[in-house]
Design a binder for these strands. Structure first.
Length: 515
RNA sequence: GCAGACGUAGCUCAGUUGGUUAGAGCGUCGGAUUGUGGCUCCGAAGGUCGGUGGUUCGAAUCCACUCGUCUGUACCA
């Protein structure tokens, strides 16, 4: 055989996905529900573009040797570097800074958008994904952080996640700073070790107390034999940090009846410092505020083990965690982690303006949350009903016009409908098409029906059910029986179709109610 | 980034110590049936065995490199 011409291979860049109709509809619905909550809290939408000048995006500046490490970057005509945004917070800070004289503070906004990260993709982890953020800029009080937490909890419930199946966990960067200081890592030289400790704490969910102990001490070797260097802390410091991680609430750690003191064995050997004290008082205030709003600790919980966004958060940090088991395609329970998070970032706008502009906000990972909701069965993926198919039996202009008219009549009545656009000469294929497409109803009118002023309406759902019962009927007999089909007057088309669709909807409701 | 496993038709997978023309099931397409989805029967298409190079008389099979997928780990704004 002759050598084939070199065909171009169709392929998707790794870490990117095409989205199906069902996924798009489901995501749109989720976004709609979240948006409703944000709007109710008085937030307004704002949109910024996918590209920003790289230096505006923040600390992950590409060096000229590796401009695409972590972010996707390109060089503009004038040789300036631009990057695809990797979150929605940095672009917001840029927008606020650029328009700071026009913007009325406190500025309350939300936005959903795609963000891009140029890093190794994994299951459920993509290089393009959607976030839905809300931020309040220009509000210094922890009252704002408390509101953010409540809004996040409301968003979870609006998405159909029942109370008790999620929790918003809140901590304060100042508390962690205070702990670092207490165990002797407060100095400038210890910045690197502080990071190591915080990273180790963040791994508590994944590795448990023993794993974290190793990471805080000598280091940890994983299953593949890869070694992660540890923080080389003293045993006493390690014990203290484990106590923090194991505490389920801040009350377990702190006695604040008189003066602030640590309660637990290892921690109590350390002195409480100013940073810890300030952080703790903020958390206490948040806790009181959300309780006044009706949010008890089953929804918003103060949790000193929350570590996130090591770099730019300056005060309260919070994250939304799902409490139900999430299973993957193979049915295995996976470590899901948080589906959203945020915190106070008082320094981000100051980079541009030199002015102190406090801000706090959070981000919901829409793509991630969607796969979890699929699991919970809270995602209506089958919502869209396929169109009614008007089949074609004659190809002359007059006949086509008649079919087109039927189709338009259905559409005018608000019924999703389409006329068969393939090769009409193979009628069997038309019904096969309708079947594959899950069309609920087919409209059939050949010359016989037309002469009588009639047409046939075929209930494809009932037909499929009959077919699955009658397995040994031969094809000729089966076809001649014209299952699940009725003959009506042409004029009754719209009304009959509507009645039948309503019946089918009723059947679906009954069926899903029973099962 | 580091470490390991894997890569054969659209999908799921066979393929013997290295031996002729690489197979099956499912799916797809056509026909039986130019006006009826399913079942049945008949037929067809579909493969650079991930890629490149090497060892060999001979490679899907062995070796090296490379690309991709998966798992763990690191990083994660």
């Amino acid at each position: 055989m002759a050598k084939k011409p070199n065909k171009l291979k169709a392929r998707l860049p790794r870490g990117f996905v095409d989205r199906s109709a069902a996924e798009i509809r489901a995501a749109d619905e989720m976004i709609g529900k979240i948006r409703e909550v944000y709007e109710r809290y008085g937030f307004d939408p704002i949109e910024t573009p996918a590209f920003e000048y790289t230096d505006c995006l923040g600390k992950f500046l590409p060096d000229t040797d590796r401009p695409n490490a972590g972010v996707f970057s390109v060089q503009d005509d004038d040789e300036q570097w631009m990057s695809l945004r990797y979150d929605l917070t940095a672009p917001l800070a840029r927008h606020v800074s650029e328009n700071i004289n026009e913007i009325q503070m406190p500025y309350r906004t939300y936005r959903a958008g795609w963000v891009f990260r140029n890093e190794k993709p994994g299951p459920g982890r993509f290089r393009q994904f959607m976030q839905f953020d809300a931020d309040t800029v220009g509000a210094p009080s922890v009252q704002t952080d408390a509101e953010m937490c409540m809004m996040m909890a409301d968003a979870m419930e609006a998405l159909g996640i029942p109370r008790g199946q999620y929790v918003i966990r809140v901590n304060n960067r100042k508390v962690l700073d205070g702990v670092m200081e207490a165990i002797g890592l407060g100095g400038e030289d210890d910045a690197e070790r502080r990071l190591t400790v915080l990273r180790a704490m963040d791994k508590y969910d994944k590795f448990g107390a023993e794993g974290v102990r190793l990471l805080l001490g000598a280091g940890r070797k994983d299953e593949s034999g890869d070694f992660t260097a540890g923080a080389s802390l003293s045993d006493m410091a390690i014990d203290a940090i484990i106590e923090i991680l194991e505490a389920s609430a801040i009350d377990d750690l702190i006695d604040y009846t008189n003066d602030l003191t640590f309660k637990t064995a290892a921690l109590s050997k350390f002195a409480i410092n100013e940073s810890f004290d300030a952080g703790f008082r903020e958390l206490k205030l948040i806790s009181d505020l959300v309780k006044s709003g009706g949010y008890m600790s089953d929804r918003i919980s103060i949790d000193p083990s929350v570590v996130r966004g090591l770099e730019y958060y300056t005060g309260p940090v919070y994250e939304a965690e799902l409490l139900f088991d999430v299973k993957n395609e193979k049915g295995e329970v996976v470590q899901f982690g948080s589906v959203g998070g945020g915190g106070r970032y008082d320094g981000l706008v100051k980079r541009f303006t030199g002015r102190d502009v406090p801000a706090t906000g959070f981000s919901i990972g829409v793509s991630r949350l969607m796969s979890a909701l699929k699991n919970l069965g809270k995602l209506d993926v089958e919502d869209a009903i396929a169109p009614v198919l008007v089949t074609v039996m004659d190809g002359d202009a007059e006949a086509l016009g008649r079919y087109q008219k039927m189709t338009q009549d259905l559409r005018a009545a608000g019924i999703r409908a389409e006329m068969y656009q393939g090769n009409w000469k193979k009628f069997g294929n038309q019904l096969k098409y309708a079947d594959r497409r899950d069309c609920p109803i087919a409209i059939i009118q050949g010359s016989d029906e037309r002469d009588a002023g009639e047409l046939q309406i075929k209930d494809l759902i009932e037909g499929a059910r009959l077919a699955s019962e009658a397995t040994d009927v031969d094809n000729i007999t089966w076809r001649e029986s014209r299952p699940a089909q009725i003959t009506i007057k042409t004029d009754d088309l719209v009304q009959t179709v509507r009645t039948l669709l309503d019946q089918q909807a009723e059947d679906r409701r009954r069926l899903s109610g029973e099962v």
